[in-house]
Design a protein around this nucleic acid. Structure first.
Lengths: 197, 197
DNA sequence: GTCTATAATCAGATAGAC
DNA sequence: GTCTATCTGATTATAGAC
C-alpha cells in the first residue's frame, strides 16, 4: 500500500467520512467520489452498488473497532479485574471514535438507517462486538464489583448508545478525547451523584 | 377536537410515527398519507412541503416533551433536592419516550438528518430544553450532591444521548417503561460499579 | 378536502469511449 | 481505471376535476 492509496481504498475512506457527516441518505455517490478524487461512475469499477460500498464500510468499522477494544482490554494481562477491564473497554471505545476513525463513527451514525436486509447482516457481524461487551458486564456483576440491581442488557444498550453519541457532539476544546473518555468511564461506573441513596 | 381527528392532526400523528420508524429520508409522503387515511397530494392542502410538515412535528415533539418533564419536576414542590429533581427528570424523559409519544421519539431519531437550515431552527427551539437540563445538573453540583469532577456539559450530552436511545431499542418484555426509567436513573446517578475507586 | 393525473427533480446505475 | 453521456426509478410537488 503506497502513500497515495489505491482507488478502492480512497473510495472507502471517503465514504466512511461522508456517511459519518451526512448519514446514509445524505451520502451521495458524487460527494463520495469527489472526496476520492474522481467522478461518481468510477465508483462502479470498484463496487457494484452504493449499498455494497456502504456495507463494506460498516463491516470494516465494526471489525477495526472490535479489534482495537479487545487489544486494549486483553493487553491488561490476566490479572486485571472485571471493572478494570470494563473501564479499559469504555475508554478505548470513546478514544477510538474521537481520534479520527471515520469508519466506526460512520457505523454509529447510519446503522439505524441501513436498508433492512443489510442491517440484518451488519447486525450479525456486530454481535461478536455485542457479546464482548455483555461478557465484560456480566463478569463484573459475577464477582460482585458491579451491581446486580441493574439489568445487564439494559446497561449494555445504554452504555453503547452513550459512548457512540460522542462522535456526533464532540468538538476539540478544553477537553480532549482522552478526557472525554475518562469522564465517560467515571460517569458509567460511579455515577454523577456524590453519594449513594 | 373530535374522536376522529381532523386531517391536519392525522397527518402530523402519522408523520411522527413514520419519522420515528423510518428516519427522515425513509419517511415517504405516500406512507405518511396512508397512515392518515388519504393519498400523498392531499397533504399539500394542509402543509406547503414535506420539510414544513417535518419541522412542525419536531417543534411539537420538543414542546410536549419539555412541558411533560418540567411538569413532573416542578410538581415535586419547592422542597425537593437537586438530585431528586434530576432523577425525576430522567425518569420522566424515559417514561415519555417509551409510553407512546411518537413525536419526541421522532425528534430523537431524525434530528441529525434534518436539512441544515431546519436543524438550526429546531436546535434553537431545543435550547430551552437543553438549558433546563443544564440547570438541573449544575444545581446538583452546586449543593455538593453531584461531583464536580465531571464536566456539566459532557454529563448533559451523555445523559441525553443515553436516554434518547431507548426508544430505538426498547421492546416490551420483562422490563416495562417504568423499570427502564428507574434503571436509567440509577445508572446515571450511582453508576454500575458497587463501590467507588 | 381529497382525488386523479402529471410534471419536475434528483440520485443511482449503465454504456461505451479513451 | 476513469471519463462523458444517458437511462431509470423513485419521490416531491403541481394542476385541475369533483
Amino acid at each position: 500500500m503506497t502513500q497515495a492509496a489505491n482507488g478502492r481504498t480512497r473510495i472507502m475512506d471517503s465514504a466512511a467520512k461522508i456517511l459519518w457527516q451526512k448519514g446514509f441518505a445524505g451520502a451521495k455517490l458524487s460527494d463520495i467520489a469527489k472526496g476520492a478524487g474522481m467522478l461518481a461512475p468510477s465508483i462502479y469499477y470498484h463496487f457494484p452498488s452504493k449499498d455494497h460500498l456502504v456495507e463494506e464500510v460498516m463491516m470494516e468499522g465494526i471489525y477495526h473497532n472490535n479489534r482495537h477494544i479487545m487489544a486494549r482490554v486483553e493487553g491488561l494481562g490476566a490479572g486485571a479485574s472485571p471493572i478494570v477491564r470494563l473501564r479499559a473497554a469504555i475508554v478505548a471505545h470513546v478514544d477510538f471514535l474521537l481520534t479520527g476513525d471515520d469508519y466506526s463513527s460512520a457505523v454509529a451514525r447510519v446503522f439505524d438507517d441501513l436498508p433492512d436486509e443489510m442491517r440484518k447482516r451488519v447486525l450479525a457481524a456486530y454481535s461478536s462486538f455485542d457479546n464482548y461487551w455483555r461478557d465484560l458486564i456480566v463478569a463484573a456483576q459475577a464477582d460482585g464489583s458491579a451491581t446486580l440491581a441493574l439489568d445487564a442488557t439494559v446497561v449494555r444498550k445504554f452504555l453503547i448508545a452513550m459512548l457512540d453519541s460522542c462522535s456526533s457532539w464532540f468538538r476539540p476544546g478544553k477537553l480532549g478525547p482522552a478526557q472525554i473518555a475518562e469522564q465517560a468511564a467515571d460517569l458509567l461506573l460511579y455515577g454523577f451523584a456524590t453519594k449513594r441513596p
